[in-house]
Every structure is written in structure tokens, then in C-alpha cells.
């Protein structure tokens, strides 16, 4: 595997357990179903109003009224349930979604996340990001270790506008798995042949090393 995004998605897939209700964000998280162990059955939730999201439809089998939060066509799994936006976000805020996996621009060493806005950028939208990271029982961030300019994304404190504070539990990059244990960031695993020195060089957050 050479694509960093696939390394991240494959490792993130191992974090998910049978029976969980999971909401996957746009980008790397959307690649996770392709890496799930066939024995692991999860229920995918999409915030625009569906529990039991199935794979992308074959060409010619697209239902225009059946989309995910990225506005891409999906299919229904057996037992799928459709509902309205207010109900969907009640599920999210109410803690009924077990795990959300999503990307981030920055994560801090205390689990703060910034992923909705770059000041001066051309984007103006928060969508369901704040609801999801605030309400889900477990927040897993999948992101490359650095920005395209090579700056660390796992930082002492976020500099970009916050999505929520202290909510992130796991961070998976192409080189490492970090976990928030209590209020402490811990490096627990190296990925894809990375060394502890590589990870240290691309991480400005303070962390403890406890490789398993």
C-alpha cells in the first residue's frame, strides 16, 4: 500500500466493532468500508437521514432520492431506516451514534478538533461536523500527519477555529496511531514502517510513547 489515505483507512477499519452504529465523514473515512473485515458488521448512519447505508450503486441502479451526506448515491442495507434531519441529529446529539470517523485540519494534544473553517478561505459551512463530534460516543480522526506545506496537524493547541474541545479519542495518520488516555496524548502504534523519529519530526503536540 503506497497511498497514505489507504494506510489510514485500513487501520481505522480495525477500530470498528460488530454491532456499532458508525457515521463516516467525507474523504478518507469513506474508504473504510473497503477495508472492513467481512466478519465485522456495522451499521452506517448518515446525518441526512439514513441508518443502514449500503455501498455505492451500480451504474443504472442509482436512486436519485437516496444519497449520503456527501450528496453521493448510496444503496440500502437490509433493515435500513430513513428519517428526517431533526430526528437524525437527535440521534447524534443524544449519544445514540457509537462512533464517528472524520477528517481534521488540526487536532490538539488535549483532543480539541478544528475541521470546519480556514479563515480567509472560500468555504462557509459547518454542516453536521460540530453535532457529530459533540454527540458521538467516540470520535476517531483520520488525517495525514502534515499539511500539504509540511506543517504538523497534531499540535499543542489548535490555531484554526475550533469544531469542539476535548472530544477526540483516537488519531490515525499514515505513520501512527495516537490515543487520548485521560487528558494525555499517547503514541500507541507505528504504521507502514514508520519510526518513532519520523513521527516525532512531523508532530508538534506533546505526547507519551507507549508502543504496544
Amino acid at each position: 500500500m503506497t497511498d497514505a489515505r489507504d494506510v489510514i483507512a485500513a487501520r481505522a477499519a480495525q477500530e470498528l466493532h460488530s454491532g456499532e452504529v458508525v457515521n463516516l465523514g467525507i474523504g478518507i473515512p469513506n474508504r473504510i468500508p473497503g477495508f472492513l473485515d467481512p466478519d465485522v458488521e456495522i451499521f452506517l448512519h448518515t446525518e441526512n437521514g439514513l441508518l443502514g447505508v449500503g455501498p455505492r450503486p451500480a451504474e443504472g441502479e442509482v436512486d436519485l432520492e437516496l444519497i449520503d451526506a456527501g450528496k453521493k448515491p448510496v444503496t440500502l442495507m437490509p433493515g435500513a431506516a430513513a428519517f428526517d434531519s431533526a430526528s437524525s441529529f437527535a440521534m447524534i446529539r443524544g449519544g445514540h451514534v457509537d462512533t464517528v470517523v472524520l477528517g481534521a485540519l488540526e487536532v490538539s494534544e488535549t483532543g480539541d478538533i478544528a475541521n470546519w473553517m480556514i479563515p480567509g478561505g472560500k468555504a462557509l459551512g459547518v454542516g453536521g461536523a460540530m453535532d457529530l463530534v459533540t454527540g458521538a460516543k467516540r470520535v476517531i480522526v483520520t488525517m495525514t500527519a502534515t499539511t500539504p506545506a509540511g506543517e504538523p496537524k497534531l499540535v499543542p493547541a489548535c490555531t484554526l477555529p475550533l469544531t469542539a474541545s476535548g472530544v477526540v479519542k483516537v488519531v490515525i495518520t499514515e505513520h501512527a496511531v495516537f490515543r487520548l488516555v485521560g487528558n494525555e496524548l499517547v503514541l500507541t502504534e507505528l504504521l507502514d514502517g514508520a519510526t518513532a523519529e519520523t513521527v516525532a519530526a512531523e508532530t508538534s503536540a506533546r505526547y507519551r510513547v507507549a508502543l504496544s
Binding site: S85, F89, A90, R93, G127
Partner: peptide, 10 residues
């Protein structure tokens, strides 16, 4: 006015 999607719906 920008609102989180769940806050908008609620």
C-alpha cells in the same frame, strides 16, 4: 447566519 446542521433542524 451559519448554524450547525442539527441546531438548524432542531
Amino acid at each position: 447566519e451559519l448554524l450547525p446542521q442539527g441546531t438548524l433542524a432542531e
